[in-house]
Design a protein around this nucleic acid. Structure first.
Lengths: 226, 226
DNA sequence: TCAAAAGTGTTAAGTTTACACCCATGA
DNA sequence: TCATGGGTGTAAACTTAACACTTTTGA
């Protein structure tokens, strides 16, 4: 394979598609954009960006996320590259899918209108562009596995959260209910989730204790496991 | 995004790199190729192929595998796309990594010489091209998870195998020993792994029972789980 | 005073781990 | 006859799952 050899090869368009997960009304949601240009104008789509010349793939995904949400420093992970020949009927485009976990409260609502963006519950998605339904399904599966292994699901909650909020989140991610008492026991054993002495009075008359994720304690815990 | 818009975008070279796993001498191995052309002549490398114009990504990976091993109908799975700007110092090339699971006995040895290919144990790999060490590490991690969830590890064994062979395989994949009796118990419970009445006399004087994977029974089992 | 969400322990079932000796055979 | 790898069962530790009532307080 000579230097020369590179020049004989075909080149391709590459985009990143972002599956942006948020948690709202006890449901897992994704942020979708209504396309206002051809091709496929009016179709709901994942936020997309073309990879630019001197840009890493990870950066393209970050850029697409920031453009759509105004958010930076967000947890993102690559899912996989979709590369079927006809996946985009208009041109040969390869798409690298990422997912992101955001707290919907941090999200800049004003961008929503400007970009025609909307949070949609994953259990009732509209028709989507190209193979994006499959992308979302794959992203959900991957995200589920990751949230079992690492406490990244918390990135979809505010910094202070109640036990019930956390349980509802886990239920939404896995699509099945958890026993309230057993769940509490498990969280109590995860010492990197600290109880604060603050009380949330918005969801009940009695009030619920607020918890917080402690990253330093988590690092300790993680090291001990290995 | 208009039709036009596609044309304004930058295009990229894309390759697939294959991490081909095999099981040999109680160790997990990968098939590596010594490059006989510039750039980086003489460096050990994963089998690579450029994506061609009307070819899916999956197909490129299959083609690279067949070229290197002479094998078709092999279990392959995409790992992820590596897209750092300088990952290949000679040109901007994105690489989509796949792993494959093969039975080294099926592998066409004659291709080995022709292509300068060699099986290398994953625990003592040579210097590798570009970011390929990271690719292999990522592929191993992924493959470990998959083999826990699905009996794909068997693709690295012959169709008939002994309990000891299977245990050694699992030990090699996970890098830690298993209790002989407990392991046997687990396999006995997986009824889709059938004991045949054939005996392997090559590894011991007494002889060891040969087992076989039954794909139909596995399908049944898989459906029952859901 | 009562509706609504928060909080609290125990037991049974199931799973995982640890562990040591006999068996069959060919050299 | 003996060295080599093949084959076998049980008990303890641990993990997971099932389950129902009391507490607080604002409306």
């Amino acid at each position: 394979m000579e230097q020369q050899y590179y020049n004989e090869q075909k080149k391709f368009l590459i985009v990143t598609d972002c599956v942006i997960f948020g948690f709202q009304q006890d449901e897992l949601n994704v942020l979708l954009v209504k396309r206002d240009l051809e091709p496929a104008k009016g179709t709901w789509s994942l936020p997309t960006a073309f990879v630019e010349e001197n840009e890493s793939l990870d950066n393209t995904a970050k850029r697409a996320l920031a453009a759509q949400t105004g958010l930076e420093d967000i947890y993102m992970e690559q899912v996989k590259c979709f590369g079927d020949v006809d996946r985009d009927p208009y041109a040969r485009v390869l798409s690298v899918v990422y997912y992101a976990l955001v707290n919907v409260k941090d999200y800049d609502e004003t961008l929503s209108q400007r970009n025609n963006a909307e949070w949609m519950p994953v259990n009732s998605l509209p028709e989507l562009l190209f193979d994006q339904k499959e992308m979302i399904d794959t992203a959900i599966t991957r995200m589920r596995y990751r949230t079992m292994a690492k406490p990244i699901g918390l990135k979809m909650l505010p910094p202070l959260f109640t036990m019930t909020q956390l349980r509802k989140l886990v239920e939404a991610i896995n699509g099945k209910p958890r026993d309230k008492r057993n769940f509490r026991k498990v969280v109590d054993e995860a010492f990197y989730i600290e109880k604060t002495d603050l009380i949330d009075k918005t969801t009940s008359k009695r009030g619920a204790a607020l918890y917080r994720f402690n990253p330093k304690l988590y690092e300790q815990y993680r090291k001990n496991k290995l």
